[in-house]
Amino acid sequence: MSSITPLPAPYTETDDPLVLPREQAIALLDGAPWQRFAVLGDSIAAGTGDPSPGYHPTGWADRVAAALTAVNPGLAYRNSGRVGATSTQVRHRQLPEILAFAPDLVHISCGGNDLFEAGGDPNRLHDNLSAVFAALAATGAQLSTFTVADVWEVERMAPMRPMRDRMATMNEVIRTVAADYDAVLTEFWDHPVRTRPTLMSADLIHFTTSGHAVVAAEVVRSLAARVDRG
């Protein structure tokens, strides 16, 4: 986490309308069958971001893991996310580790570093993501992923607006691959959190921890929709 203090958030964790209280997250996941949860990818997977006053300094994936552990106390959790990782690196360096871990629920989050600069190849990203999803789907694991939010209309984000079209392209690749492998897809492109001026860390790339709290809430909701209630 960065040591730079971000702008004060308009809410705290206890009154943020986009954040699920712990008890509600646990109730939504009641009956979830997953015993081994893995996350692989880049800094978004790793949970990078500046702390937000009034919010626990916890990344989204750790929050989801905590809710799943409350439902299944024996849950095993591994997060191989690395800052700066490209889809090629995820495919060749992280995927073998995660396959060896043998998860029954796995979230894949990468692609931004592939297309961060002009000239990135969406076709290579598609090929790498397809290979990662295919290998994990073959194990029988439930796959999960999400799109990135359209944060670039906020005034603070003006220096980063050239990224917007590339990230929209990345989202299309993610949607396509998620559909191919019946992954749980959590959509953030039009999510209301995108307009919060305190959402982004000082680097204007990563969510603050207030954003991570919202991401965790939406991922829990998406996963809950796949739980077989009998």
Rank of each mutant, 00 (worst) to 15 (best):
P57C: 01
R91E: 14
D104M: 04
S52N: 05
R93M: 03
S87E: 09
I108N: 00
G140R: 06
P57L: 03
N72D: 06
F133D: 00
A67I: 00
D104L: 04
P122D: 12
F146H: 14
S87V: 11
Q94T: 07
G112S: 04
A70V: 04
S109W: 12
P73G: 00
S80G: 02
P53G: 09
E117G: 03
S80R: 09
Q94N: 04
D121Q: 04
R91G: 01
A134Y: 05
P57M: 02
T86N: 05
P73C: 00
L143F: 06
A137R: 12
N123S: 15
R78C: 05
V151Y: 10
S109E: 14
G112P: 09
L99C: 03
E97S: 02
S130N: 15
A67V: 08
G81V: 11
S109M: 13
T88V: 14
L136G: 00
F101Y: 11
F133W: 04
S80I: 12
S87D: 09
H107I: 08
L99A: 03
A67Y: 07
F101I: 05
N72Q: 14
S109Q: 12
H56N: 11
G59M: 08
L115G: 08
V90T: 07
N128P: 13
A138Y: 05
A118K: 11
R91W: 07
W60S: 14
R124A: 15
T145F: 09
A66R: 09
I108A: 00
Y55F: 15
S80Y: 15
H107P: 00
A85V: 04
S52K: 06
V151F: 14
L129R: 05
A141G: 01
A65W: 10
S52G: 13
V151I: 15
V64Q: 04
L75H: 07
A135D: 07
L75R: 07
V90L: 09
N123A: 15
G54L: 14
N123W: 07
H92N: 08
G120S: 06
N79E: 10
T139R: 09
T139Q: 07
N113D: 12
T58D: 05
R63N: 08
T69N: 01
A85Q: 08
L68G: 06
R91K: 11
L136Y: 10
G112E: 02
P53S: 14
D62T: 08
N79R: 06
A135E: 13
A85E: 11
A149W: 13
T58Y: 00
A102P: 02
C110W: 02
D114S: 06
S109D: 11
D62L: 12
G120C: 08
T145K: 04
S109T: 10
V132C: 01
G81E: 10
L95H: 05
R82W: 05
